[in-house]
Design a protein around this nucleic acid. Structure first.
Length: 360
DNA sequence: CTCCGGTCGA
DNA sequence: TCGACCGGAG
């Protein structure tokens, strides 16, 4: 380990020197790791419990639950014998209660199929309920020192920064790529500590918004740091939240005919039939908007209700009003009176079917 | 209020 | 591949 001093001022390429880069991390971990209850043991049951609780949940929150759980259910046998209600009672307040149900179910599987001994191979561990790729890798490496990667959100962030990887981390392809890269870095004799060190680095140093690069063991080898991209990595497809649209929707009836719109092919649901819509504006009434946009002189009869329709990329909130119109009014092109019988023969998308339902 | 995140099932 | 599950943080 005398070599560590040499490494500090020399940029290393990750592909060339994965073991030296791993060594830098482990040396940092030895000095800086937090003392956490689940780090005092390699007992697979305790490691498993901690990893399940740590899914989607902060360390500070988990500590008390973890200790209480182990006190109440000190081993797999006691958990397998418990009533689900008692397991859920201990879990109360921690959230994601399916984790507790799966934990209980898995304990029963371990009890029945493995005579109460937690399985020792990755495929067997991975097959237990509630255990996905990440948790299986974490348990295999931490409890048994097996060289499997455990890639969670922390590790995705640390890895993309180290490599300067611009790929979208929400894609499975990217996650597999990173898992393979991590797998190659795992020191055979310290797999479990390497797993924990990576996550500790992500939690304590390589944080999302203001990473503490000055204190980072990888500051000399990190591509993102060298190129000042710490805060733009990782790249994640922005969960393009659907745009919201609030509409007034006119149901205008005349002798059993309904005023419909044939939608232009340039808009959403084009070349199909719908109802006249106007986008709400707080300064104007529905009547004013329909006069302005559709040249309709409508008279309010009744509010019929609200229809919500979700597309992949937009959400429509349609407040539906029943209107009357002077019997022999002209309607501009694009609008047409459609008899109720003909409605069922026309292409009318679901969003407007829901509106028409309000009339029945 | 919005955003975040492992696993699972649709 | 995407939403539901939940509570905490911003």
């Amino acid at each position: 380990m005398n070599k560590l001093a040499d490494l500090v001022d020399k940029p290393k390429n990750i592909q060339e020197k994965p073991s030296e880069i791993a060594a830098l991390l482990l040396a940092w971990y030895d000095q800086n790791k937090r003392e956490l209850p689940w780090r005092r043991t390699n007992d697979p049951y305790a490691v498993w419990l901690s990893e399940i609780m740590l899914q989607q949940t902060r360390v500070d929150t988990v500590i008390d639950y973890y200790l209480r759980f182990l006190e109440r259910f000190p081993d797999i046998g006691s958990l397998a014998d418990a009533d689900e209600g008692d397991v859920l009672a201990i879990w109360k307040g921690l959230g994601y209660y399916r984790r507790a149900r799966n934990l209980h179910q898995a304990a029963i599987v371990v009890h029945d199929r493995y005579s109460g001994n937690f399985p020792r191979t990755y495929p067997e561990i991975r097959a237990l309920p509630g255990i996905g790729d990440y948790t299986a890798g974490a348990i295999a490496s931490i409890a048994y020192n097996l060289p499997y990667p455990a890639v969670d959100g922390n590790v995705l962030r640390v890895a993309t920064r180290l490599l300067g990887l611009e790929a979208d981390i929400s894609q499975q392809k990217t996650q597999k790529q990173i898992a393979e890269m991590i797998r190659e870095m795992i020191p055979k004799d310290r797999a479990g500590e390497f797993t924990q060190a990576l996550m500790e680095l992500g939690a304590m140093c390589c944080t999302p918004n203001t990473p503490g690069c000055r204190d980072c063991p990888w500051r000399t080898v990190c591509t993102a740091h060298r190129t000042h991209r710490e805060t733009v990595l990782p790249v994640k497809k922005k969960a393009k939240k659907a745009a919201r649209f609030d509409y007034w929707t006119a149901l205008v009836c005349n002798d059993g005919d309904i005023l419909m719109e044939y939608r232009s092919n340039t808009q959403l649901l084009g070349n199909m039939w719908g109802l006249p819509l106007v986008q709400k504006e707080s300064a104007s009434s529905a009547e004013e908007l329909f006069r302005r946009d559709w040249e309709l002189d409508l008279r309010f009869i009744k509010y019929l209700g609200s229809v919500r329709h979700v597309f992949t990329h937009q959400v429509w909130q349609m407040d539906v009003i029943l209107f009357s119109l002077k019997p022999d009014s002209e309607v501009k092109s694009g609008l047409a009176w459609i008899s109720r019988e003909k409605l069922k023969d026309l292409p009318i998308p679901k969003a407007f079917q829901k509106v028409l339902q309000l009339m029945i």
